[in-house]
């Protein structure tokens, strides 16, 4: 079992990294996942965790993953909105964890919207 003492190592690593990193800014890309009852029931929690895992794995420091309530189109849940500064919002619908690596690679890293996952 993990011990709380291991947090010390994480703390030091994060403090070193954050010295290199500029502060969170308006240039950050935001990924927002709908997590109301409709989203949760449709499977938003594994999608949220897939985004967090993938962002952590690729060490993307300019991406913020966050949650919101009901986006208003419950039958398309899980819904993920991606906000790239200076570009229109992109809404992905019926997102599954297996779709997350492609959204990260194509859209967030290489700036090509994955059109087939967006709302038709």
């Amino acid at each position: 079992m993990k011990s709380l003492a291991e947090l010390n190592a994480i703390k030091q690593r994060v403090q070193e990294n954050s010295n290199n990193r500029k502060n969170a800014s308006d240039n950050d890309i935001k990924v927002v996942i709908g997590m109301a009852t409709c989203g949760i029931a449709a499977g938003a929690r594994p999608v949220l965790n897939a985004f967090i895992d993938e962002v952590a794995k690729r060490k993307l420091q300019n991406v913020i993953v966050s949650q919101t309530g009901c986006i208003g189109m419950c039958k398309y849940e899980p819904i993920v909105e991606v906000f790239v500064p200076g570009q229109p919002k992109v809404t992905y619908v019926k997102v599954e964890p297996t779709m997350v690596p492609r959204i990260i690679t194509d859209h967030i890293v290489n700036n090509n919207v994955v059109a087939e996952y967006t709302i038709k």
Partner: peptide
Amino acid sequence: DEIRAQLDGIPLSNYEVLAFIKEYIEGG
């Protein structure tokens, strides 16, 4: 609060911290 006490202001939502918390709870 116990986690926060070890972290000197590093946010809990830091991805490494979240990964730790997940494993810590699963172990518990």
